[in-house]
């Protein structure tokens, strides 16, 4: 799904989420604001318990904020009914989970085709598109294998193909390498980065791993349900091992307005600016070429 120019992929304004547990209000997210533009590569990073999962569920339209304004793909989730929200997820979001979440008794191609079922696309066309997408992730030769017949890395690539088959505006990856060994994880990350660079799909990666987060051009650090920092790195080094992630706006990062764009702030202001930054800076970036080049071993079969 290609969003109209100027429409951010995701726009959160003072978003809060409070859970009711046995009658007690437990605040999970407290006033989170940021904008993610189409084609951006953003890491949402934070330790466990930082509520980054809650944030991911909100960004993916799986949950709704209790307060604040959340606009996904140009649509305010507060105005959407449950079926409309489902359609929004189908059209705008592609999920990649830590645990893959593939249907065990279903072949790779049918797993990938699943989102198209709920779009009402015919069986033949579903299979064709799913097969083509599996080709893009380098699994064109594994169409009819079941998840149990695939390695962990292959399973996650099937899951990525499933996320991608609907041509979404945002790829939401929740600890995509969490269940993989480091070499396989590296390959999966490179694949995600290549897809982000190639197709202009925004990549939002939720992780607790600073090393993984450091690969993203922009890092949003979450702690205790608040955005601690939101920084764009001019030249993030692909696979820069051992490089400490910068929190709280370290010198190498360009600080973005975080707490400044609080409630009541016109969304056009910071959103527009961020959008310009994201859109303009990405394509000429040297990192993109590097990312694709470094992906050679796995990407051979890619379209």
């Amino acid at each position: 799904m290609t969003l109209p120019v100027g429409v951010p992929a995701i726009e959160a304004v003072d978003v809060s989420r409070t859970y009711q547990l046995d009658g007690v209000s437990v605040p999970a997210l407290r006033g989170v604001s940021f904008t993610i533009d189409s084609g951006e590569y953003v890491a949402v990073v934070g330790p466990s318990g930082s509520r980054k999962s809650t944030l991911m569920h909100l960004l993916g339209g799986l949950d709704r904020p209790t307060d604040g304004r959340l606009v996904i793909g140009g649509r305010d989730v507060a105005t959407l009914s449950a079926p409309e929200l489902a359609t929004l997820r189908n059209e705008t979001i592609g999920f990649v989970f830590q645990a893959f979440h593939l249907l065990p008794r279903t072949s790779a191609v049918d797993n990938v085709a699943l989102p198209l079922v709920y779009r009402g696309i015919g069986a033949r066309q579903r299979r064709d598109r799913a097969a083509a997408t599996l080709g893009r992730v380098g699994l064109g030769h594994r169409l009819h294998h079941r998840p149990s017949q695939l390695s962990g890395g292959e399973q996650q690539r099937v899951a990525i193909a499933r996320a991608l088959v609907t041509d979404p505006a945002v790829l939401l990856a929740d600890e995509p390498t969490g269940n993989l060994d480091s070499a396989t994880g590296e390959a999966v990350l490179e694949l995600l980065e290549r897809l982000n660079a190639e197709s202009g799909v925004a990549l939002v990666m939720v992780t607790h791993d600073q090393e993984v987060a450091a690969r993203a051009r922009r890092q949003i650090a979450v702690r205790d349900g608040r955005v601690r920092s939101d920084a764009i790195h001019d030249r993030p080094l692909s696979g820069a091992v051992g490089r400490p992630a910068t929190l709280d706006g370290a010198p190498s990062a360009e600080p973005r307005s975080v707490s400044g764009s609080g409630p009541g702030h016109p969304s056009g202001g910071s959103g527009g600016a961020a959008g310009a930054t994201g859109r303009l800076s990405r394509p000429p970036s040297g990192r993109t070429a590097e990312g694709v080049g470094g992906d050679e071993p796995q990407a051979g079969g890619g379209s």
């Binding site: 993916g60 079926p83 489902a86 997820r89 189908n90 059209e91 709920y118 609907t166």
Partner: peptide, 16 residues
């Protein structure tokens, strides 16, 4: 349950 969650995540409506 997990399958239901996944189907919902990829766009299944409650009715589906």
């Amino acid at each position: 349950t997990r399958e239901i969650g996944l189907r919902k995540a990829v766009g299944a409506r409650p009715r589906d």
